[in-house]
Amino acid sequence: MIEVQQIHHVSLAVTDIERAKRFYREILCLEEIDRPNFGFPGAWYQIGSQQLHLIVYPEAKTLRGTNELSSREGHFAFRVKSYDETLRWFKEKGVTIYENPTSKSGFAQIFVADPDGNLIELNTEQ
């Protein structure tokens, strides 16, 4: 039997690492950590005990080709401290969002897309 302990990391394909790093640093406020030299561009971020890995791979089949927001598309979620502060931050930065403060999931949700269309949910308890 497999006994999964936790998610270690999520990897996302991106097309332009500098553009992606600006988004994850300036919009999502993540701090980059050291990454081994794999011979291709990318970036790693520590988020609690998990990591986010960005990999430059323009041929990836997972690139959506759109920044259209939908809660039903594949995505990953960050838990944030404050829904209202997160919402205010995105609005100040001019980030396009999809709000779902009364989701049936029990989470108050905000969805954003990175520059390559990767969907990210930010949520809090309702």
Results as ranks from 00 to 15, higher is better:
residue 2 I to T: 10
residue 2 I to F: 08
residue 2 I to R: 10
residue 3 E to G: 08
residue 5 Q to W: 03
residue 6 Q to C: 11
residue 7 I to N: 09
residue 9 H to M: 07
residue 9 H to N: 05
residue 12 L to I: 01
residue 13 A to V: 00
residue 13 A to D: 00
residue 15 T to C: 09
residue 17 I to G: 01
residue 18 E to I: 02
residue 19 R to T: 05
residue 20 A to L: 01
residue 23 F to P: 02
residue 23 F to T: 02
residue 25 R to N: 15
residue 28 L to R: 12
residue 31 E to I: 04
residue 31 E to K: 09
residue 32 E to C: 11
residue 33 I to L: 06
residue 33 I to G: 11
residue 33 I to P: 07
residue 33 I to H: 06
residue 35 R to W: 13
residue 35 R to T: 06
residue 35 R to N: 10
residue 36 P to K: 13
residue 37 N to G: 14
residue 38 F to C: 08
residue 39 G to V: 14
residue 41 P to T: 05
residue 43 A to G: 04
residue 47 I to F: 09
residue 48 G to K: 00
residue 52 L to A: 00
residue 54 L to Y: 00
residue 55 I to A: 01
residue 55 I to E: 00
residue 56 V to K: 02
residue 56 V to C: 03
residue 57 Y to R: 07
residue 58 P to R: 05
residue 60 A to Y: 09
residue 63 L to D: 03
residue 65 G to S: 06
residue 66 T to D: 13
residue 66 T to L: 09
residue 67 N to A: 05
residue 68 E to R: 10
residue 68 E to K: 12
residue 69 L to V: 02
residue 69 L to Q: 03
residue 74 G to T: 05
residue 75 H to L: 15
residue 75 H to T: 05
residue 76 F to Y: 10
residue 77 A to C: 12
residue 77 A to N: 04
residue 79 R to H: 14
residue 79 R to S: 14
residue 80 V to I: 14
residue 80 V to Q: 13
residue 81 K to A: 14
residue 82 S to Q: 04
residue 86 T to V: 13
residue 87 L to I: 11
residue 88 R to Q: 07
residue 89 W to I: 07
residue 92 E to W: 08
residue 93 K to V: 06
residue 94 G to Q: 10
residue 95 V to G: 14
residue 97 I to R: 08
residue 98 Y to K: 13
residue 100 N to I: 05
residue 101 P to A: 08
residue 103 S to P: 13
residue 104 K to V: 06
residue 106 G to F: 14
residue 107 F to W: 14
residue 109 Q to C: 07
residue 109 Q to A: 09
residue 112 V to E: 04
residue 112 V to R: 01
residue 114 D to W: 05
residue 116 D to H: 01
residue 116 D to Y: 00
residue 116 D to R: 00
residue 121 E to F: 03
residue 121 E to S: 01
residue 121 E to A: 02
residue 121 E to N: 01
residue 122 L to C: 11
residue 123 N to S: 08
residue 126 Q to N: 11
